[in-house]
Design a protein around this nucleic acid. Structure first.
Length: 424
RNA sequence: AGAGGAGUGGCAGAGCGGUCGAAUGCGGCGGUCUUGAAAACCGUUGAACCGCAAGGUUCCGGGGGUUCGAAUCCCUCCUCCUCUGCCA
C-alpha cells in the first residue's frame, strides 16, 4: 500500500509509474484518494476540536461536583449530552472516510522503479543475461512427466487418489531428491548470512493483509473457514510478517531470514497443456529468502539476492536466464522484480524458478515495519524477497537435462545430500 | 475441550470511575563529578493522526457498550498461566 503522503507530494511520479504498469484509470483513482483524504483530514480536525471541548467540559463537571455546585454541574451535563450526538455522527463519518481511503489505496499497485521497462506482458520483459549451455538431448529424450513414471519417483495418480490434482507423491529417490535440494538450499542461504526459520504454514488474516495477498488475491489461497486461517502461498507471508508492527533497532539491521515451507496455491483456472507435470502444482516446496533493509541499501541487497540465486543455479549446472520484468508483468506489490528461468531441455521451454523483488515501502507501510534512525526519526524499512529456490521446476529441469541412457545424473553438488549419483 | 486466574510503556510493576499517557524501579540517552571508568547525583526517555507552530485528538490485548467523564464498570473475541481431560 502506498502512503497517501507520497501520492499527495509526488503525484506526477506516481502517475508516471502507474502508466508504466499499464494500469488503467490511475488518474481518477489518485484524484479520488486525494479528495477523500482531504475530507478525512478536515473531518478529523473538526472532530478533534469537538472532542477537546467535550474533554474540557467533562473535567469542568468533575470540578463542579467536587466543589458541590450540583446545579451548575447538572446544567452543563445536559448541554454536553446534546453535543454528544453530533460528535457520534461525525465519528462514524471519520471511520467511514478512513476506511474508504484505505480501500482505495489497496487498489493502487506499487510504483515501479525507474529501471523497470514499460510493457504489457511477458513478451516485454527485458533479458538481462543468459548463462550456461543448453544441452542437446537425444531425440528419444523424455519430458519429466514421462521420466518420473519411468523411474517411479513422483506419482500423480497416487496424489489424485489421496488429495486431488496437483498434489504429487514423491517416492524413493524422488523424495530423497526433494529433501536433498531443501537442505542444499538452506545450507547455501546460511552461508550467505541468512538465519534459518521454520514458520507456520497457516496464517491469519492480518498477515495476509500485511504482505499484500489480501484483499485482492483471496482466491489464490486455501482458506480454513472454521478458524479463519489461510494456507500460505509462499514463506514470504509468515517470514515477512514476523516483523509486522515492529520498530526494529538500527543495529539489528539488516534482517536476513531464510525458510523452507511447503507452499499452497489454488491456481484457479490456470491449467492447460503447458502446465503439465511439475510445471504447476497446488502444493510445492520452496526455500525463500527475505531481507529487511534500510531504504538506501535495498537495491544493493536486491543485487546480492540475485547473485545468491544465480550461484545456486550455477552450482546445480542448470542453464538459466535472468529477466527484468516489465511494468505490466510485475507483481502488484513489487517495485522491481527479476525472474530467473531455467531451460528444461526436453520440453524446450524456459521455466520460472525464482522471482526476486524489492517492495520498497509498499509492504512495510501496511506492516507498520519501521526503524528509528540516528536522528531518532522513525522511518519505514524496505522489504525484499526471493525464491532460493522453488523445487518442482528445478527437479523438472534436472530430470530432463541430465537424462542419459543409464539414468538421470545428479549434479555433483547434490550428491553429498542425496547420497546417490543417479536415478536409475 | 472444561474450570479458575491474568493481560498496563523496552522490561518489571502500581493504579481499579475525574486532576492518568499513566506512580515507582530497571534499562536507554544526555549531563555533573573524574585523567578515564564505575558509583553517586541531575535531567531526559512510547506511538499514530491533524496543525507552519502553539497545541489538539487517539491508543493501558482487539472490538463493542454504560457514563458528562473509562486503564478502572459491563459484554464479546483473542492470547497467556494454573488445574482437569485428550493427544503426536
Amino acid at each position: 500500500m502506498l502512503q497517501v503522503g507520497v501520492i499527495r507530494e509526488q503525484t506526477e511520479r506516481v502517475l508516471k509509474g502507474l502508466r508504466k504498469r499499464n494500469f488503467k484509470d490511475a488518474e481518477n483513482l489518485v484524484n479520488l484518494i486525494l479528495e477523500k483524504d482531504s475530507q478525512r483530514k478536515e473531518t478529523q480536525q473538526t472532530l478533534d476540536d469537538r472532542k477537546a471541548k467535550a474533554n474540557a467540559d467533562a473535567r469542568k463537571i468533575g470540578d463542579l461536583i467536587k466543589s458541590r455546585k450540583d446545579d451548575e454541574a447538572n446544567t452543563l451535563r445536559n448541554n454536553v449530552a446534546e453535543a454528544k450526538e453530533a460528535t457520534k455522527k461525525m465519528e462514524a463519518l471519520l471511520v467511514d472516510l478512513e476506511r474508504e481511503v484505505i480501500e482505495l489505496l489497496y487498489k493502487v499497485p506499487n510504483v515501479p522503479h525507474e529501471k523497470v521497462p514499460a510493457g504489457v506482458g511477458a513478451e516485454d520483459n527485458l533479458k538481462v543475461s543468459e548463462h550456461g549451455t543448453i544441452p542437446i538431448l537425444d531425440p528419444s529424450a523424455l519430458p519429466h512427466w514421462e521420466l518420473i513414471k519411468k523411474y517411479d519417483i513422483i506419482d500423480f495418480d497416487l496424489g489424485n487418489k489421496i488429495s486431488g490434482a496437483g498434489f504429487p507423491v514423491y517416492k524413493g529417490k524422488g523424495a530423497k531428491l526433494q529433501r536433498a535440494l531443501i537442505n542444499f538450499f538452506l545450507d547455501e542461504a546460511e552461508k550467505e548470512g541468512y538465519r534459518e526459520v521454520q514458520p507456520p504454514v497457516v496464517v491469519n488474516e492480518a498477515s495476509g493483509y500485511g504482505t499484500g495477498q489480501l484483499p485482492d488475491k483471496e482466491g489464490q489461497m486455501y482458506f480454513i473457514q472454521e478458524d479463519g486461517l489461510y494456507l500460505i502461498p509462499t514463506a514470504e507471508v509468515p517470514i515477512t510478517n514476523l516483523y509486522r508492527d515492529a520498530i526494529v533497532n538500527e543495529e539489528d539491521l539488516p534482517l536476513k531470514n531464510a525458510g523452507y515451507t511447503p507452499c499452497f496455491r489454488r491456481e484457479a483456472g490456470s491449467w492447460g497443456a503447458h502446465v503439465r507435470g511439475l510445471n504447476r502444482l497446488h502444493q510445492f516446496d520452496k526455500v525463500e529468502i527475505v531481507q529487511i533493509r534500510k531504504p538506501e541499501e535495498s537495491y544493493a541487497a536486491l543485487d546480492e539476492m540475485c547473485a545468491h540465486v544465480q550461484s545456486l543455479l550455477e552450482k546445480l549446472e542448470l542453464p538459466y536466464r535472468k529477466l527484468l520484468l516489465c511494468g505490466g508483468d510485475m507483481g502488484f506489490n513489487s517495485a522491481l522484480t527479476y525472474d530467473m528461468e531455467v531451460y528444461a531441455a526436453a520440453q524446450q521451454r524456459w521455466l520460472e524458478v525464482s522471482s526476486v523483488s524489492n517492495f520498497e515501502t509498499f509492504q512495510s507501510n501496511r506492516l507498520k515495519l519501521r526503524y528509528k534512525n540516528k536522528e531518532g526519526k522513525i522511518q519505514l524499512l524496505h522489504t525484499l524477497n526471493g525464491s532460493a529456490l522453488a523445487l518442482p521446476r528445478i527437479v523438472a529441469a534436472i530430470l530432463e537435462n541430465n537424462q542419459t541412457s543409464d539414468g538421470i545424473r545428479i549434479p555433483s553438488v547434490l550428491v553429498p545430500y542425496t547420497r546417490f549419483e543417479a536415478v536409475n
